[in-house]
């Protein structure tokens, strides 16, 4: 019997610190598998955010840097410009990328920095205990929107992929989900394309991953995956928003 599925080399043996059923682990594995498949692990530098995935440097078996809150694209810019032959990716949540780090991500995309951004959108702040994020859906109950998010006073959820895809500098932008095996397989293909864009030096690539946060949503992991399907995907449609012809 041959092993057909196992832990990728680009992940360390450290068990994830995420809650049961959190999709962060799946996203980590997909990124690690792509690094393995391209054979670039030894030449990769990742930038972790602030948030639940702040400990990503323990889990990825490549060089990692931890950025100040929201500043991962700025740090990745510096790394990539000084080491253009390295593969540089950031791994950021929605509180990090879409709130405090909005300026950094918009301008990194607009400059067409040759980096790959893995953006986890779970519609809530995870590590700090479930506060409202810019991506929180209208009507969604969180610690800081106990009566549900009211767009009249709290604004509408930001569609980051659509917003960034209007920028000329962005080369590859897509949105995927991890709520079922079919979507996980598609997500991996998309992450692979994003890294391919960077390997080909074509410019900025971002994959937005709709992901669950069972603990802060107050749902079981199985219910949370259903919630992604029923509530998040209708507002955050899956698909590719910017694709260079060569990898389409």
């Amino acid at each position: 019997m041959k092993k057909v599925f196992g832990r990728p080399v680009s992940l360390t043996d450290v068990p994830f610190t995420y809650c049961p059923g959190c999709h962060h682990g799946i996203a980590h594995r997909l990124v690690a598998e792509v690094l393995d498949e391209f054979g670039v692990r030894e030449n990769t530098i990742g930038v972790c955010p602030v948030g639940c995935s702040v400990f990503a440097y323990l889990f990825f078996n490549c060089d990692m840097v931890c950025a100040a809150h929201g500043r991962a694209p700025a740090i990745a810019t510096g790394i990539k410009r000084s080491r253009p032959d390295s593969i540089v990716f950031t791994y950021q949540g929605d509180g990090d990328l879409a709130s405090i780090g909005t300026a950094e991500i918009v301008h990194a995309a607009n400059r067409g920095e040759n980096i790959t951004v893995i953006f986890i959108n779970n519609a809530i702040y995870g590590m700090t205990g479930g506060q409202m994020a810019p991506t929180t859906l209208a009507g969604q109950i969180t610690q800081t929107s106990p009566y549900g998010r009211d767009p009249k006073t709290m604004g509408y959820p930001i569609r980051v992929s659509e917003m960034l895809s209007t920028l000329k500098g962005a080369t590859y932008i897509s949105r995927v989900a991890l709520n079922k095996p079919a979507n996980i397989i598609k997500a991996k293909k998309s992450i692979k394309k994003a890294f391919q864009v960077q390997l080909d030096r074509k410019g900025f690539s971002l994959v937005e991953i709709l992901s669950s946060c069972p603990t802060n949503w107050g749902l079981s992991p199985v219910e949370a995956s259903k919630w992604v399907e029923e509530n998040m995907i209708p507002y955050y449609p899956l698909g590719e928003f910017r694709v260079p012809e060569e990898v389409a």
């Binding site: 092993k3 599925f5 959190c22 682990g25 799946i26 397989i185």
Partner: peptide, 10 residues
């Protein structure tokens, strides 16, 4: 592929 903790080998 669904396991968030990569706890399953096939």
């Amino acid at each position: 592929i669904t396991c968030p903790d990569v706890a399953i080998e096939v």
